[in-house]
Amino acid sequence: MENIVEVKNLTKSYKTCTALKQVSLNIKRGEIYGLVGANGAGKTTFLKILAGQIFPTEGELVLFGAHQQREQENQRKRTGVIIEEPGFYPQLSIEGNLEYYRLQKGIPGKAVIEETLKTVGLWEVRKKKGKTLSLGMKQRLGLAIALMGEPELLLLDEPINGLDPSGIIEVRNLLKKLNQEKNITIIISSHILSELEQLATVYGFLGKGTLLEQISAKALHEKCGNYLDIMVSDAEMYTMLLEKQFSHNHYLVLEDGTVRIFDLQQEPEKYSALASENGIGLRAMTLKQNSLEDYYMNLAKEGK
């Protein structure tokens, strides 16, 4: 598959800090690339560089095969963007804002406005002024602006910020539909990792400006696996038995005394029996699936 974005050793430094350090990655056509990272990890900086809003200090960016800034400016007509807050004029109506961007993008015919507003669910309130919109509506308007003109690449920074639960589901479904039906490549960052989990086909984990790992959703799913949370009366004794009798040392003792066991090698019942047979009180036991959040936390902790 063709690479839409190629990034080599991308670094962005400001006077006081380095926001991105030597990031290299490729994003292929048709992927939904989930950017995962804590605040200040470099997600927005990365997206802003892709959008041409800021310049990298070092490194190379290839966008739709274009290497030079001038060529990239032409190629950016194939992208739609929401980075940080959606940009629109508060004095113009929703419809007026779309007309403004329609003219700017040189899209012929006004039919596209109706089509786009219906897609994001703003057609009924199209006469509302930008300044009177709720946070959710602003996000939808930003999305409408990004979608207008059938972009091939969407750069979305926290696009579900401020949306209500039904809005989140609608946007998620819309993005999936755009990806599946029109093969639009999407690069999306979100703090709500459970949302990313339902969308992304590839993940890029960023931590303190560096790319910690890039992994496909399939590989991540396989890698995550199950873990067992077991709450016992004597965690110290239990973990000693765990190591001695099961030769198992991949576990964590949480702050509340819960023992979290990874890479389960026995049936869950065996782990409960280990406690009861040795006179350790068993208070609770839950078998859990490692979430994207856990995976990221472990990755960040390991500082891999």
Binding site: A51, G52, Q53, R76, K77, T79, Y89, Y101, Q104, I145
Partner: peptide, 9 residues
């Protein structure tokens, strides 16, 4: 607004 215009190329 400026960000959008720049991002649009």
């Amino acid at each position: 607004i400026l960000k959008n215009a720049v991002a649009y190329g």
